[in-house]
Structure formats: structure tokens, C-alpha cells
Design a protein around this nucleic acid. Structure first.
Lengths: 238, 238, 238, 238
DNA sequence: TATGAATGAGCATTCATTCAT
DNA sequence: AATGAATGAATGCTCATTCAT
């Protein structure tokens, strides 16, 4: 509604804190509407009802501002999507993590594009807060895996990093068309379900292959026969 | 080879064909060295020993030139990495496809970045030759899966698209650090092996889940043995 | 139909004469379709099935070629629209001249734009063949006026140049919307009629609008004289 | 005045308002001296003592700047040439309108060329402010005509649009040579007088050519007197 | 503290004309 | 005679960042 109005009826004087928040909120709005490729500090200033120079007082550079937007967004996401309760079934835990990730992508495609295309590709990515946040979230996935391993439900010899890459890779690839604007939307439920199932059925502790079963049956049969032989012997002895 | 030599001792006049090839080669060189973000038509012209206008005579725009570079590169890749022979074991076929994909990424990180970040994110991506090529290659993966399904080695109820997304997602995620320039290189062999195994062990036809069955059999056997022992003892006491 | 085909099935070898004609025809086509602002020698060459350099063999410059196109067009027009027969009524003669002028504008708006906007505004206009042609045609208008003057139907004290300017000015102003592409077309008949009438009724020798009055007075005077003669005769007879 | 001085001793910082005005003034200067065909934003910047980017900060494009120059010029003209007072004789009113139009052309030939050749030929002309202004001025002519019609001095069946086209057409055609730079100048007075007279004498309700009527009446009176004398003589003779 | 005017380097693109082959 | 490859100057426009007021 009032989003495009250049002069917000913002109070003239705000604390540094509040002003920072305002600028960040406006900046997110701009990225959302225009895409990060068309992000202009000037527009943020105008929409925030402040001067362009002011933006640079609060943020060293355009880049820093944008990174802060991503950071704040990610932080919100992390606090809204806490690690799943450990008492839930493994499958549900994993589903929940994947679901919330897809949910966040669907809500903020523009910001997602910014993080995936611009920040992640940056040579300096590892020093960015977003990188840490991304690791934090990824950890919640790895934790679920680890828990499954402890419980014996998941193979212990898995390359955790690879599991993680596969999950997030699947999530990303499943959403590119949407991020490109081709699909109006995608089903978060179905996609999350699909990924969860495939990953789980893939990494779940392998069930005994029949050969083992046969061997065991033969063994048990042999034991039983032995017992019978003993009991027969006992009956004879009587 | 001759990559960094600014002044080629090339003949002044070339056929349209040769000039096109030369510009394309130079352009790839520039992308490789400077990254697609810093690609300058002027630099391509200078390195090719021609005027900047010449570049635009052969390519409508900077963008078109870059897309052609990607297209040619992908085409080379596709012809160098033919679909795996169907008589190979399934695992080997899959490994080969993933391996060649990783190999290509390792050889041309800059071009990979261009395709993954710039082209794929373009709203017009689906109309690009690169999209078709990408589909062609992805198909070779799906074909392997399909073959596995026919042979009964792979579950038939799989979402093929998801399998594909998972594989390529894993490939990409496994290489981001390298693409960012953090890792000098990565082991194509090990990464391909890891992805192959994890995917295959996940999507392989499920073997009978018999652990519970075995436990129950053991329990029954024990009970039976007990019974026998009691009945034997009773018979004796009688 | 075949207009846009790059390679006309033109005979390989043409006389200088024929080739010149071909290039001119093609060039007119290009101006017609693309507008003189977007006229490219290269396109003329391609459509003519010859090389770009060839165009410059036959015409010193792009400008000269375009001027020649205008010249040929004007020449055709002049031969198709000969000065009106002097035995026609003045009004018809004038109408005919204006009509053919409007007709030509309607047939070739792009060429008209070229002449009116580009050539006529050129500081060198007076040395262009088109200027002479334009004068020739304008003369046919002036001749009609002159004839009218001789016949006493048109005031002799008129500024001929001004009459001419007014006629052609009216023609041009009446067609600007069409030349701009706003109107699909305009009625040549009605426009020509309107201009003719207004000019003629404006510049025609004013006829005494009193002829009837004078005749009546003469009639009354004769009657009066008659009466007087009778009364005089009667008075004498009395 | 200060027109050709590249380095104005102007204050470094100006208000948006003042800077806009300055750029506009400089731009008009450039058009005037170089012609609109050779108008360069860079030159405007340099003459204004600012950077080229500044020009684009104040005007979206070269075209917009030029259109604004034309608009301002036209606005000045309109305010300097108010509609003629209705109590003046019709002829004077018309003369005044035509005179001020010619005056403005003579003062700013380069701007006139820009408006007549570039703006008016633009397919988008009707959406330009200049179009509205042009309509406003044209209306003042039509108003005079209308007034004449009301007063019974001008024929009511006239096509107003055609009258307008004829007037402005005559004005334009009368000035092309000057606009081309051929004539050093032209006589505004004489040209305006010529056009006014021709238009008026064309469209004016024809007045009885009283002199002839008077002469004829005198003649008839003389005849009558003669008759009377004869009849009197006859009566006497009787 | 706040403004917003000013910077200025950066870059893609066009095209008439020439000239080596 | 003919080709068409090559020229190369010209120019409109963008925008992050600074700094005078």
C-alpha cells in the first residue's frame, strides 16, 4: 500500500537503533520489489524519508546494507524455524527442517536469489554473517542425521557433508523455476515430503539382506534340531 | 597455451568462420581469467587484435557473445561426455555421468559460475540454448535411472525429477567452495563416488525389512526350545 | 512479398545502368519499410544481393544514394502528374495539382518524410536536384494562378510566392498526422477539395455581389423612363 | 549575453531549481549554436561547469532535456504573445497572431527547426507538452476566426482546421529558406501582412464593391435625367 | 546531524566508409 | 570487378560514493 510513497510519515528524529531498523526494513522492501540487481541506495533513502547521505552514515556501503538485510532476514528465519523437537519421529524432524526452508524460499524469492546468487558466489562468502547462519541452519539438519545415527536408524558411515549437500541441493534445484519467476508457486508440502522420503529411504540403516536372513534361519533351525536331539536324549535317559 | 599473449601473430583478415571462432576462444579466455562479472567486450577485441566494433559485427551484444561461449563450452562437454554404455553396471554408469560433470566444473570454474549464477537465474533461461543442453545432459542421468527401474534394481515409484535435482544439487553444493576459489581443487573421484553411492543406496530397490522378523523368529525358537525342554522334563518326571 | 529476402535471385552480372536501377529500387524499398532514419546501406546491399562495398562503387555515400532515391521518386511523380490541361476550368486545374500532390504523399509517406524533414531542412537543399524538382512542381501551381490572372479570374496583385506557400503549407499540415502514422489514411479527395475551394474563394477576383442589384436598378430605371415617356405622351394628348 | 563563456563564475552548489534552470538555459544555448542535430549532453555539462552525470540527474535523457527546452521556449512565447484583444479590428487581431509567430521563428530558428522537424515528426508527438502548447496557440487563431464568424465578417461554413493549416502552413513555408540559413533574415512585418491579407480577403464575407455601384447609380441617374429632359422637351414641343 | 548536489569513471553499442584480398 | 572483413570514432547513460553547506 504505502510502500511506494516516497515520503513516509516517519518521525523526524529516530534513535540510531530505530533508524537502522527502518532503513533495513525499507531496503528489504526494495529488494523484494525490484530484485537485488536493481537495488538502489537512493530509492531506500527516498522511501525511508531520509537523504541518500544518511544511508551511508548508517551503512558503510550499499553492499554492507544489502548484506545486513540478508543477515536480518536469515536471523528471523532461524528464530522462526527452531531445531525440531528431538522426541518427534526422525522423518518428521527432517520434514520440518526441509519444510521451513522451502517455506522461507517461497515467502522471499528475491532475498533467496540474493543470498544464493550474489552472496554465496562471493569469494568472501565465508567471512559473511550469512555464511555462519547458513552453517547454523545446516547444522540442524546434520543434528537430525546424527540423532538418527545414534538411535541406529541411520547408517553411521555416511558422509554428513554429502547428506547436507544433497538435501540443500535438492531444495534449491526444486525451486529454481519458481525463483526465476516461471512458476507462480510450488507446493511446499509436496516438495518437502518428496525430498524427505527420498533422503530418508536412501540413508536409512540398511535392512538385512535376505542372505543373512536365510543364514540365520538355517542357524536357528540347527539350534532347534539340537534342542530336540537333547530333549530326546533326555527322554531316553529317563 | 597461447592464452595470455595479447598480440597474436594472426593474419589481419580472417574468414567469418575463423574470426568467429577466434573471438569465441578469446572471450572464453577472458571469462576464465577475469570472471564473467568483469567481462569486457573491449578486452576481447584487444586480445583478438581487432577493433571493438568487430566484436559487435559478429555478435549482436555482449550478452549474446557470452551465451555463445557458454553454449560452445557445453557442446564440447556434451560431446566429450557421451551417455554411458548400457552394458556397464548401473553404479558405474551413474558414477561416470557424475564424474564427467564434476570434471567439467573443475576444468572451467569461471564458466560454470557463469552458467549457474548468471544464465540459470535469468528469467529467460528456458529459451536459452544452454537450457536445452542442460536438459540433454540431465536426461542422460534420468536414462540411467530409468534403465535401473526396468532392470528392477531401482524403485519404480521414484519422482525422477527429484532424483535429478538431488544429484545435480549435490554436485553443485559439493563444488561451491571450489567455485568460490576457496579450495585449490577437490577430488573428482571421491566426490563422484560419494554421491553415486549415496544416491544408489538410497534409491536401490528396497530389500525385505526382515530384522523384526528375525527377532521374532529367534524369540519363537527360544520359546519353542523352552517348551521342548519343559515337556521333556515333564515326561521325565512323569 | 520477396522484399525481405536477402538474396534476390538477381542475375550475377548487370550493366552499370541496371545495377544502379536495382540498388535504387531496393533502397526505396528499405526507406519505405524502415523509414529514412533507419536506412542502412548494408541492408540495401544484402537485399540487392550484392556486397556492401558495391553500393559505394555506385554511389559516393549513403546520403547520395538516398538523395537519388528521392530524386527518382520525384521524377516519377512529375511525369505521372503533368501540368493540368489549360482548357479545364481553373478550379479543376488547381484541384488536380493539389490532388496529385496529396496522392503522392499518401502513397509514399516514408519518402515524403524524408524529403520534408531531411532534405528540405538541409542547408544545402537549394543545390539538390530535389529542390529543382520541387520548384518545377510548384511552378505548375503558379502557372495555374498566372493563367487565372490573365483570364481576369484571379487578382493580379497577389504575391505568387505566398499563394504557393499557402497551398503547399496547407497540403503539408493536412497530412502531418498521417505522416506521423496516427491516421490510417486520409481522404485525398476531400482534402484536395477543401484546399482548392478555400484558396480559390480566397484569391479569386471578387465579383461584384451587386450584379443583381444593378440589373434591377437598370430595369427599374427603364420602367421609370417608360412611364415618364407615357405620361409625357398622355399629358400632351390631354 | 554570457552565452559563449564556458566557465561561468557560478557558485559550485546550486539548488535543484536553479541548477535545472541553468542547465535548461545552457542547453538552449547549445541548440541555438550547434543545431539540435549536433546537440551533446556533454557539451551542456561542460558549459554549465558540471559533470555530465549531473545532466542525467536532472533530466532522464538527452531527449527529455531537449523537449524541456522546447517546452520552456514555447511557454515563454505563449506568455509573451497573449491572445489579441477582442476589441481590435479582426484584421489586426489576425495580423498580431501571425506576426508574433513569425517573430518567434526569427528569434530562434534552431529551436523552431527542432520543433518542426524533430518533435512534430515524432510518432509520439501528440503526447508531448509541445503538442498541447502548439494546440493552445493554434486555438488563438481559431478563436479570431470564430469571432469573425460571430460578427458576420467571416463565412460560417469554413473548415476551421483547414484555415488553421493554411495559416501555419504559409508561415512555415515562408520561413524555410531562413530556417535553412539561406536568408540572413526576412521581414516579419511584410510576411505577416501578406499572409493576413490573403487569408482575410479569402475568407472574409465579400463586401459590396460600392464604388462601382455608386458609379453605375450616377450613370443611371444621369440617364434618367436625360430621359426626363427629353420628355419635357417633347411635352413642350407638343 | 542531516542534506542532496555533485562527482566521474565506466561501458555497451552503432555504423558509414575503407581497403586488403 | 567484387567482396566483406575491418575500422574507429562517436555517444548516451548509470550509479556508488563523497562532501560542501
Amino acid at each position: 500500500m504505502s510502500s511506494k510513497t516516497p515520503s513516509r510519515s516517519a518521525p523526524r528524529r529516530l534513535s540510531r537503533q530505530d533508524r537502522t531498523t527502518l532503513i533495513l526494513r525499507t531496503a528489504r522492501e526494495v529488494i523484494r520489489e525490484k530484485g537485488f540487481e536493481n537495488f538502489l541506495p537512493l530509492e531506500v533513502a527516498q522511501r525511508s524519508g531520509i537523504s541518500e547521505g544518511m544511508v551511508y552514515k548508517y551503512f558503510k556501503s550499499k553492499r554492507e546494507l544489502m548484506e545486513r538485510v540478508a543477515e536480518d532476514w536469515f536471523e528471523e528465519f532461524l528464530s522462526e524455524a527452531p531445531p525440531p523437537a528431538q522426541d518427534l519421529p526422525l522423518r518428521d524432524q527432517l520434514f520440518q527442517v526441509i519444510w521451513s526452508s522451502l517455506m522461507s524460499i517461497q515467502r522471499e524469492p528475491a532475498l533467496t536469489r540474493f543470498v544464493l546468487m550474489e552472496l554465496r558466489a562471493d569469494p568472501n562468502y565465508r567471512n559473511l554473517p550469512t555464511y555462519r547462519q547458513s552453517r547454523r541452519f545446516a547444522k540442524s539438519v546434520v543434528d537430525v542425521i546424527e540423532l538418527g545415527v545414534e538411535r541406529g536408524a541411520i547408517r553411521a558411515d555416511l558422509n554428513r557433508k554429502l547428506v547436507r549437500d544433497m538435501i540443500f541441493g535438492a531444495i534449491e534445484h526444486s525451486t529454481w523455476a519458481f525463483l526465476r519467476g516461471e512458476d507462480e508457486a510450488f507446493s511446499v508440502e509436496m516438495t518437502a515430503r518428496g525430498i524427505t522420503d527420498m533422503i530418508l529411504d536412501g540413508i536409512r540403516t540398511p535392512k538385512p539382506p535376505t542372505s543373512e536372513l536365510v543364514e540365520r534361519l538355517e542357524q536357528l533351525t540347527r539350534q532347534l534340531a539340537e534342542e530336540l536331539r537333547h530333549s530326546a536324549a533326555a527322554g531316553t535317559a529317563d
